[in-house]
Design a protein around this nucleic acid. Structure first.
Lengths: 295, 295
DNA sequence: CCCATCTATTCCGTATATCGGAAGCTTTTG
DNA sequence: CAAAAGCTTCCGATATACGGAATAGATGGG
């Protein structure tokens, strides 16, 4: 259902990657065993919750059963995968979970934003998303469901959207460095076919609008009847590091409520920015006032 | 600070592992490149948020720089690590995040419990933990901070505690299959030195008490002034699949509030159990009532 | 109940992918 | 500006990972 959101873009600009002048090799031949192992993990992640069997993996990744068996053994030993002895099925291991808690969390953004997301979803009674940029995509770092009314079960944590599609990623895009934004537009325009935006002029108009008003809100949602509003979270230099996004049914974002929501979002976004001190990593850590683990 | 909670037990009973009659080999010599790659990921996870440099990793894992370089390159290409070109430091990649969203999530436990955790932390105004068993440890699957008063910053998501230490893991332990519990006790007693429990008799008494009353609450917390209450989350057969745990300052768990908290926890735990249908995986998925991604 | 089929696991020779020394290159430090 | 430390590339030796084949185990059908 939401598996399509999880696909990742090939490149990874702004962070690293082999660079544009790729070595030109591979694209099929000679994978390292590390790559194979990671491929297995990804496959396990995308397979249903019952898990995948050895042969399934073998076939899907075009590896021989002995190879898969050996790799899986290592993954299990390392805690990255779990084998259900009864059903002979493999799932992702809990240790991955521990890894990821630390992952993709520059500036402790997630920790900082968590209480804010909670507050927002409680106040607005809608689902709130925290998105960050990752290459040419936006990634959902966290989300907080509203207390009742509407819940959306897509856009899971870790899910990816093409940067420029959807309000959150649009808000990020609008507040990137100019050159970066150009790069993203160039790369992403072809990827946006079939999701509403095919027109560069339109996209640029939208971006300008978002920059002017400080928020993104377009009624042409990805899904009929659904709408969203999003504001960027800016660093000290005024560039986007993330976006706060509200997803709800269109009726709930009418012209009288919209400005209120935007106002609240902007206030919270500013609060986050204030906690993002790019110069002192130490201060960024929320102080451990009182210890106490899972009691 | 909480890095010690992240260490994992050697074995992984109940799930898999090479079994007790281990091949007897290794334990230092000859690591596969997959293992090395995963070791790097773990190191990145445990290094501070600034990230680790190539040489740091090289030294820490006793690998030559060229090796680390090559592995890191692969990890970056695969999205499991990110290289900050400016500072020459490596961090965990966001893709890991996407993986883990699916990991260690049997029965969608986390999705099911998320709203309940939120409700609990809002109601009780304390921090709520969701713990599951992983081998001889309990792992923190999710947590939800209370709105104000006290927040504990240890016991992070993904953190591990020895099964039997702390109320949450005690609640799980008390409701395991008898043989499994024995195995856990045997394995964990030596590991419990210095965290309060050194006496098998005392531990067994505690477990019996928890079974009788249906909740765990011991004032001898890991940290002075802190206390916790926990109830198990049971499957259809009455065995523990998880625990709900409240961590707070001792004053807030006095004899008049404790029963109230326990009551609420039990109710929510029962609600979770009801959603755990081991026979129909399809029904377990929360239905996507309305779509709508990060808008 | 036994046989046929599919899957998981072990074994082992081969070949390839991995390793690490050495050297070039870049960045930081004094 | 020189020196040191760190990062990256190259390449030959070898350890390691691969996959075919055969075994053991599970599943299902006749």
């Amino acid at each position: 259902m939401s598996a399509d959101l999880r696909r990742r873009a090939k490149g990874s600009a702004g962070v690293e990657s082999a660079g544009p002048e790729n070595a030109g090799t591979d694209e099929a031949g000679s994978k390292s065993s590390l790559q194979r192992g990671l491929a297995i993990l990804r496959l396990l992640a995308s397979s249903n919750e019952a898990g995948a069997r050895l042969t399934d993996i073998s076939r899907a990744l075009d590896l021989t059963p002995p190879t898969v068996h050996r790799l899986l053994k290592i993954l299990v030993e390392e805690g990255m995968a779990e084998a259900d002895k009864a059903t002979k099925r493999y799932r992702l291991g809990i240790d991955l979970f521990g890894l990821a808690a630390q992952a993709g969390n520059p500036n402790n953004l997630r920790d900082i934003c968590r209480p804010i997301l909670l507050r927002l979803s409680a106040t607005l009674r809608d689902t709130i998303f925290l998105l960050v940029r990752s290459g040419f995509d936006a990634v959902c770092l966290d989300r907080s469901e509203g207390p009742f009314p509407i819940r959306s079960f897509t856009g899971d944590i870790g899910g990816r959207v093409t940067l420029g599609v959807g309000q959150g990623s649009l808000a990020i895009m609008a507040f990137l460095h100019a050159e970066e934004r150009e790069e993203v537009i160039r790369f992403n325009l072809p990827r946006m076919q079939g999701v509403g935006i095919i027109d560069e002029v339109y996209l640029r108009t939208e971006i300008a609008r978002v920059r002017d008003f400080g928020y993104a809100s377009r009624s042409t949602g990805l899904l009929p009847g659904m709408s969203g509003v999003a504001v960027p979270v800016l660093d000290r230099d005024g560039y986007a590091v993330a976006a706060l996004s509200v997803g709800t049914i269109s009726e709930r974002l009418n012209e009288e409520r919209l400005p209120v929501v935007v106002d609240i979002l902007k206030r919270e976004s500013a609060a986050i920015s204030r906690q993002l001190n790019p110069f002192d990593p130490v201060l960024r850590r929320p102080a451990a006032i009182l210890g106490g683990g899972p009691a």
